[in-house]
Computed example of a mutant assay.
Amino acid sequence: MFNKETWYSIKKWKTYGQHFNGNGATGGKVALASRVSTGFKIGGYGLGTYNAWSINNQYNNGELNMSGMIMEQSSNLYATFGGTYGVAWGIGWEGGRAITKTTWYQQWKNDYWYNFREEHFGY
């Protein structure tokens, strides 16, 4: 939302160059865009810290093995500090987790996917 070259106006849903400071109609780059961007960054670090603690807790309680914990912590690290691509990774990772826990997905996997895989790939 706010970087060296551009800033994003929440009011206008438009990106502007840093040469334009904004006005009442755009919300202004410092008055709104910079503050919102900083809030997202701090919130993201907070969520990443909480998630790291939660992953360690799961590992300590025996809910995750060592390789699972390393995989989860690596994903969390990239999602927290990976910038735009890290955010996209984190959304995809957690979105996939949410989908695979649903009843309809489990039914689809058991009723369709395993049969398809056996028929076409032999396993």
Rank of each mutant, 00 (worst) to 15 (best):
T38F: 14
G17K: 11
F2I: 01
Y112P: 00
V36N: 05
M71Y: 09
A31H: 12
Y112N: 11
W108N: 13
I70F: 13
V36T: 00
Q58K: 10
Y85Q: 14
T15I: 09
R117S: 08
Y59M: 00
N57G: 07
G24W: 03
L77W: 15
H120W: 12
T6E: 08
G92I: 02
F40S: 05
G24S: 02
N21T: 12
K12R: 13
G17E: 09
F2T: 01
W7P: 05
G122A: 09
G43K: 02
F40G: 07
N51L: 13
L64E: 12
Y105M: 02
E63Q: 15
I99H: 09
S9R: 01
E118G: 00
Q18H: 07
M66E: 12
Y8Q: 07
T38V: 10
Y78I: 14
F2D: 10
S34T: 03
G95F: 00
Y50N: 01
M71T: 11
Y45W: 15
E118K: 15
I42Q: 10
G92S: 04
A33R: 01
W53E: 00
I91R: 08
S34D: 08
T26L: 08
L77E: 12
A25F: 09
I10H: 15
A79R: 02
G62V: 06
G83T: 03
A33H: 05
G122P: 04
Y78V: 10
N76M: 05
D111A: 12
Y8K: 02
K4W: 09
Y45F: 15
K14M: 04
T49D: 05
M1Q: 11
